[in-house]
Computed example of a mutant assay.
Amino acid sequence: MGINLDKPQLWKSDIKSSVDLYNRWFMEFAPKAFRKTRISTAKRVKRALQETNYLNMISHVMLEKHPEVLPVLRMSTCPPIARDRLVGLAGVSKSLVQNMENTENPHVSPRMKKSQLITELQKISDILTKMADPDIFTWLSDNREPEETEIARASTIIADRLCGAVADPIIRNAQEKRQLAAITSLLEKKGYRFAKAGTHYNEMPAGTFSFHMNVPVFVAGTEGETVMIPVDVAIMPLSANPGDIPLFIEAKSAGDFTNVNKRRKEEAVKMQQLKNTFGNDVSYSLFLCGYFDSGYLGYEAAEGIDWIWEHRISDLEKLGI
C-alpha cells in the first residue's frame, strides 16, 4: 500500500495545502534570505568598483588580476549583458568568460597564449567601458571622483541586478535547508543521529541518516559500469539489519507549476537507476513542498514513485523509520 501515490482523492486538497505552506514560508523567510544575499553581494560589488577605480580603469591588466569582477561589470552596463551575449559582442572565447565567472575559482584560461589572453581581455574591457550605465555611474560623464552616497547607491543597484539573475537558486537553497531541517527534527525526536562524515550508503549503522550522499548505480547497457548519483537524504531505519539498503528521499520544492513538469522525468530516471542496481524493492520517495500539480503527481505515481508532503511530515513514519 502506498503513502500518497495511490490516494488521488487527496491530491487536490494536498496540492492546496502544499502551495499555502510554500507561500507562507516565502513571504516570511524568503525575503530574509534574499536580503542577506543582497547585502553580501553589495559588498562584493563595492570591492569590484574599488578594483576598477570606480569603472575608470577597466583594462586587460585589471581583468587578468581580478577576474572575479566580471559578473559585476556585466551587470554594470546599459543594458546588462548576459554571459553569452558578452562572448558574442566582444568576439572572445566562451571558455575564457566561463573561467572568469567560475564561482569557486575565478581565473583566466591558463593554457591560452599570453598574447591572445591580453587581446581577448582588452576586447572585453573595451565593451564594458563603452557600455557602462551612465545613469548609475553618474561620475563617469563628469570625469570626477564619486561621492560615498553615489558608490553606495550604485552598489545596491548592481547587487539587485546580480541577485535578480540568481534569485531562484537563492530561494531553492534556503528552501532545501528548511526542508532538511524539518526532516532532521523528526528523525532526532525518534532517536536517529547523523552518520559520520564520509560514511558510505552501505556502511550506515541502523538509526542513522545522512544528507547529500552519492550512491553508485549501474549504467544501463553496460557490464557493471557504475556512475554516482546524488541523493538528498539517506535513512537507515532503527530496525535495519547489516547489509540493508537505506531509504532514499529527494527533497523538492517549487514556486510555480511550470518548472516541476519540465523536470519530472529526472526522478523517474533516478528511480530506474536505483531499481536496476538494488532491485525493485528499493525505497525512493519524494519530500514535496510547493507547487506540484496533479499532472506531476500522476506522472510520478505512474513511475511507481511515492511522496511525502511536508505539510504532513508525519507520513515519513509510513516508510518504516
Rank of each mutant, 00 (worst) to 15 (best):
A152G: 04
L128Y: 01
N241H: 14
A48N: 03
S109P: 01
A181Q: 12
L73F: 08
L274R: 01
R38C: 05
F137P: 00
V227S: 02
I58L: 07
L187G: 03
K270A: 09
N105E: 11
L187N: 02
L180T: 15
I39G: 05
V72L: 04
S115F: 05
C163W: 05
L247T: 13
S253Q: 09
I158E: 00
A174P: 06
I15K: 06
W309G: 04
Q98K: 11
D281K: 08
S93F: 04
D84E: 13
W139A: 11
E303M: 10
F278T: 05
K113R: 07
F194L: 14
W307P: 01
I183V: 15
I170H: 07
E188A: 10
D244C: 11
Q50K: 08
N202T: 07
R263F: 10
L186R: 11
A159E: 04
H200A: 10
T208C: 05
S283R: 13
N214W: 06
L21H: 10
T156N: 13
I171E: 04
K275D: 05
E225S: 06
P71N: 14
L186H: 14
N276S: 07
N23I: 08
S17Q: 12
R153F: 08
D244Q: 11
D306A: 06
M112L: 15
T77R: 04
S95L: 07
D293I: 04
E64F: 01
N241D: 11
R172K: 15
F209D: 00
D84S: 11
Q50W: 07
Q116Y: 04
T199L: 01
D6E: 15
M62G: 10
V233M: 01
L238V: 03
I171R: 08
L274C: 04
I136F: 09
E176R: 09
V108C: 09
D281G: 05
G320P: 03
E266N: 04
K94G: 06
E225K: 06
R312E: 14
P80K: 12
G290M: 03
S283H: 11
A30C: 11
R111P: 00
Q116C: 03
R264Y: 11
G91T: 12
E300N: 12
V269L: 09
E250V: 06
E147A: 15
K7L: 13
K189Q: 15
N143P: 00
G224L: 02
F209L: 02
A268Q: 02
F26Q: 12
E68L: 03
H66P: 02
G207D: 05
M271D: 05
G191M: 13
G290E: 02
M100W: 02
I58M: 07
G164F: 07
K318E: 13
G279D: 07
S253Y: 08
K94W: 08
Y201A: 03
I229N: 00
H200R: 10
G279F: 03
S294W: 01
K65M: 09
F209E: 01
V231L: 13
N143G: 12
M112P: 06
I124H: 00
I118L: 10
R161E: 00
S17Y: 06
I229P: 00
F34H: 09
G295W: 03
K130W: 11
T129W: 04
P8M: 08
H60M: 07
P242K: 11
A30T: 13
L21W: 09
E317H: 10
M112K: 14
